[in-house]
């Protein structure tokens, strides 16, 4: 396939829903999500892949949406924090973030929550080091990461506990 300056149609799954949008080929996935689809929880950070604020999950794995071209998500599945839980039905990770006091300014929180979810989906019982490695790519200037790490492990305990019951 090829597409020029005019526009390119991209079809993908966003938070479980099929979407079809026309976008510029030189738009990034971040541009597509924020500007076209108004998903504002995906933050515009450094736009050079350094800070992790624009994290989304593509086919369940965390990626930097500022480094992916919009046409590259064609046919794939994208998850933003809106697809993880809402105030009425929080995901265990979100619950744990609230309870552990893992939230300060909240700018990195969606990226952290998404990363934690992706981690727990693969590894339901990560040790501290594994959690720290997973969130290495998301910077946080407020918390010193301590309560974020604790929240992820708290969420793991809860989820694992649920399975055992």
């Amino acid at each position: 396939m090829r597409a020029g300056g005019g526009g390119i149609v991209v079809r993908f799954t966003l938070n479980g829903r099929e979407v079809e949008v026309t976008t510029r080929p030189n738009a990034t996935l971040l541009d597509l999500l924020r500007n076209e689809l108004k998903i504002l929880s995906v933050r515009r950070g450094c736009e050079t892949g350094e800070c992790g604020m624009c994290t989304v999950l593509v086919d369940g794995l965390p990626v930097r949406s500022c480094l992916m071209l919009a046409p590259q998500v064609d046919g794939r599945s994208v998850t933003t924090v809106e697809g993880v839980g809402d105030p009425e039905r929080l995901h265990p990770v979100q619950e744990a973030f609230v309870e552990a006091g893992a939230v300060q300014c909240g700018f990195c929180t969606p990226a952290m929550v998404l990363t934690a979810k992706a981690l727990l989906d693969r590894d339901p019982n990560p040790d501290e080091r594994t959690v720290k490695e997973a969130i290495l790519g998301v910077l946080c200037r407020c918390t010193g990461y301590a309560k974020i790490v604790r929240a992820v492990r708290l969420a793991a305990e809860r989820v694992a506990g649920g399975v055992r019951e």
Binding site: T80, P87, L90, V98, G106, T109, V113
Partner: peptide, 21 residues
Amino acid sequence: KGVRRIDALDKVTGRARFTGD
């Protein structure tokens, strides 16, 4: 007491809006 933050829910759900939004 370790009272929960009053803004936590907005922030974990991504609903919190910042200037650029």
